[in-house]
Nucleic acid binder design. Sequence first.
DNA 1: GGGGGAAGGATTC
DNA 2: TCACGGAATCCTTCCCCC
Length: 944
Amino acid sequence: MEPNASNAGSVSADQSVLLSRMALNDNKAGMEGLDRDKINKIILETSKGSRFYENELKKEHQVNQRIEKILQQKAKLTEQQIQNAQIEVEKLSAELERGRNLSRVIVHVDMDAFYAAVEMRDCPELKDKPMAVGSMSMLSTSNYYARRYGVRAAMPGFIAKKLCPNLVIVPLNFAKYRAVSEQVREVFADYDPHFLPMSLDEAYLDITDHLEQRQHWPESMRTYPINEGNSEGDKPSTETEAETDTLSPVLFEDSPTASPTFPVPRGKGEVFGTSPEEAVREMRFRIEQKTSLTASAGIAPNMMLAKVCSDKNKPNGQYRIPPERQAVMDFIQDLPVRKVSGIGKVTEKMLAALGIVSCAQLAQQMAMLSLLFSDTSWHHFIQISLGLGSTHIERDSERKSMSTERTFAEMSDAEEQYSLCRDLCQDLAKDLQKEGLKGKTVTLKLKNVKFEVKTKAFTLQCAVCTEEEIFTAAKDLLKAEIDNVSPQPLRLRLMGVRVSSFVSADDKQPQQKSIVGFLKMGSDTSRSTPAPRVLGILQSEVSGVSESSVSALKQQSADTRGPSVVVETSRPFSKWGNESEGAREPQQQTFFQRALTKRLQQQQQQQQQQHQSEQEHHSVSMDEPCSTTEPHTSGFMRPANAESLQTCGESSSKTNTASRANESTHMDTQSSTKTNMEQCFTCPVCFKEIKTTDLTAFNQHLDECLKGSSALNDNRTSTDIDQDLDVHGKYLHIPDPMEQLDQPGSSHSTATTNPSSESSSSSAALKTLSNGMLKKTNGMPTKFEFENNKNASLTPFLKCSKDSKDESHSLPPNEPHVLLKDSGSNALPQNSTHSDEVGIKTVNAEKVSTLTCPVCNQAQDTDDLTLFNHHVDMCLNQEVLLELRESVPPVSLGKARDSEKALSARGKSKRRGSSPNPPSKKSKAISSRHTIDKFFKGNSSQKF
DNA sequence: GGGGGAAGGATTC
DNA sequence: TCACGGAATCCTTCCCCC
């Protein structure tokens, strides 16, 4: 029986409320007949008053509330409901019964006190001492001597020391355990080559096939010599060299079936029979011979029963349930539910509150349970009550997540926390890369000094595996938490990072397409192909997400399932900027996408050649995963300038940029990179290389270039422009310890997360571009007006409605829009030759198809898609756009905090005990309309 | 209402 | 003396979007 409030004994009443959580769990071999009261008293006295204790108390109350609730529900159940439920239960029961499979012989093998046994084997002086493996913080296991004092796994060492002052605590040595485990597994493989290891010390085997073969084996194949713990003892042999009648050292007293249970004649090997029991005994014998360690085993028709059986005669024993229904039912009858894997202390307590302790009671109350628990839960219960379990050992189940976490003494310094976060990401990245895994979801786990655990997750659009990529996401999650408790420090005792939502091997291929590819795919009517996206460039600013969030997003484009325009910056937190970015049907595509698609369809040949040419030139192979260190600007990028452009979040690319930024703080990250190398800037408007290192001169050039563009916007009304310029508190910069971390000299310098370096290396070119646009356009606010205009956006193209259906954000009919002038397309608007058209349009009769950049409105005097792509890339380059925020004075800082807090405050805690103001995961961000995509969508919805 | 992401919990070793 | 882990999986609930 498990300890619970009812067996509190002499422990005081206030302590008894905690017993089910805190008290000794003697559901372990070697712990029968202990003085539980005395042990519990010591445990509770040692823990009392600690933060851990307080948290346990809180959790216990939560469980009690659940029980309260479920009892109330139970009280409301009518007889009729239960009768109806009973019919359902019987129906399912009959169905399950029909599917009962008793044909397999499943074995669960569990090494006895594995770590402790290994240590005792290697250090004989420990054998007659109470010992445990672990640390003062936590024990992993204990030997049977120590168990008599109540010392067991998952108990803190300091409490164990209170229970048993003579306890010897041996530190963990996983390398050693792994090596031994490997030896054990070699034996397993002889019985089931596809055995399923559950941990270093246990495994499931299906020995059905082995038994079949075994029937035909001669005795010699079932005979093993007795060797004292050497590794040769696992070879079948008719020759016995052993002169001993003992097996491995007896590690534990009172072993129910200490080996050998049979007299072993001197001079003879041990001969094993052909039955399942004999085969398993042989397996355990061989393990013992090979490792000097004992194992226990359970033999049953399914995994659930085998698992329970292996515990039945522990240590060094085995138990078999014959493959007969009655035998199974007899076994199950009196089995405490807690013995079943999957029923923990909470479920046990809840069931106990309903009067259910044994599996027989479970069966009797199934109708009621079906009304009180979820389908998943009661279906599980009914299987247990019937003694059913899996008869097929799933061998190829793939890992679903990978994580790393660390507990430490209180840490309140944000800088330290970020640093630790990076370390964790680094470790995790190494592990992920070792296994060739990439995942889309990054989860940050935090445990504060009050032992309250919080997890924050963010799902990226592309799978990640590098330190930089993971850190970029994790850092933002951490930042959100730090901000959440600000101005109080975040007082942590644990931090962990997890990556999950792994992509399949196929998905690991880069999904990034050049604009040509993307348009090609966008024109594909295949429903299964997610449509291309051009995401909000300024979303992060608008929603108050840190720069690093944006940089995280830069990483997302390459691995997305659908082709995406690589300049996208989606949001790291959906709660901070939520728009559906899923697959888009062709009819949902933006005007821009459709128009270009159409146009490109007609230029298919040219396109293909172009694409091919790009591929040849690009340093990035399409076979490489997104996280490669190569840039992924694809079709937008010109090879020569490739490394200066950030798109898909490659760590080294970013780091390089960071280094450069730090080295030369006056260089902008776009043009400057080139400048660094070639002493010239590339004008993002005319796309010419300006041979100067003088930023002022270059800016003048840009202004000149931009003069031409202003005319395009001249007919815009100020209202239009105001709508377009909706910035809502963007360009905010929240000082962040990361900035310091990323300062030059930091070993973890990252351009993408370093507002300072971005600031100092701000893109003069694009800054000037934006200024130019603002200044040159009649009625458009200057950047100073800009910050006061809450409905401002950078360009008409960054404006978008929240929803394509949202007409209020759609452009008026005379608004500049992306149009494709193509005489061959009847899908195009008739007014497409109008002078204010932007996008792809006809400039003159000779030049059939001059392209106009949808970002800067500048007609590009070229039909060359590569050049055009390059130009758009330049315009959209998000890192450069990031610089734009720097034009807003720090006065906005408060806004940022408010904005974030407001978002947080909107979030409603779903869980008991969660922090009062957690950031809402689904909060609608103010910024959701700032996507080019939405703009086009809204625009196109008008036009079509 | 269903799907899916996010957050918290339960469980196991 | 102080002091309660780490990794993984599955489930439930909440919430938002379609």
